[in-house]
Amino acid sequence: MGNSLKRNRVLVWRETRAAYLFLLPALIFFLGFVIVPMFLCLFYSFFNYTMNDFSFVGLQNYVEMFGDPIFQKALVNTVIIVVVAVPTVTVFSLWVASAIYKMNAFSRAFYRCVFYLPVVTGTVAVSVVWKWMFNKYTGLFNYVLNGIGVIDEQINWLGDERTALACIILILFTTSIGQPIVLYVAALGNVDTTLVEASEVDGATKLQTFWKIKWPSIMPTTLYILIITTINSFQCYALIQLLTSGGPNHATDTIMYYIYYQAFKLNRYGYGNAMGIFLAVVIAIFSLIQFKVTNNGKND
């Protein structure tokens, strides 16, 4: 009995050894670039780690963080971005995907390309174009709105506290919808047509068919989209760096940008790490809520 068990284990090991070895390079990278830095981040967050100091301060960085008014402002801005961007991206993507997934292959591919283009275009290039469109003096938006008589004076889109964050969310929206649309088109295309036809034969309306058949079927995709959009929104940094530097008057500061500012501009690596840990915890909590709300992505 014992020998048989041992022989089985040897056989299983022989079968899986190659698989593990093939996974090894990826595992090394994952450990080296994700797991180890995560623990280092946690470790350094308890230190006053600067360019010329490395001393243990316990929870001091965390205490300072919660009392830092700029961090609080950045946190509020980040939550606004997430709360606005995630539902709008998800709903809009689903709407577009619903409209195009039944089209012929050429039209479907065309729309997928159109919506995916901002994703594959570099962030810097996208930002430069948007910056030009938002320009107060020579920008497209002011030119058009002036031309049709909607405004009578130039709006400083990125330089006004009232509009800057909305502009960032708009750009984030356009660069975030590409992948969800492609995923939803694929998911909707894979919904069991026999169920849809059966419901239609039973007299279900289009809305009922969507909510009772299609929506549960694409729930795993929805969960994935919710989570990646949430993470992307929480990590909004490049747009801020390229367009507003967190201004005006911290109106577009986000936690990610503030981490960058503290770590790279002021060389306060320990403090930046503490904020990074906090951000990771917040993202985890949001993701957990999404898992619960979407019933772990199950379609039953």
Binding site: F134, N135, K136, Y137, T138, N156, W157, L158, G159, D160, A164, T244, S245, G247, P248, N249
Partner: peptide
């Protein structure tokens, strides 16, 4: 005042005759 631009943008606006 313009919180939407930095020196490089201002220089460009000067160079193209806007400012």
């Amino acid at each position: 005042f313009d919180a939407g631009i930095q020196a490089a943008d201002e220089l460009q606006l000067f160079a193209n005759g806007t400012l």
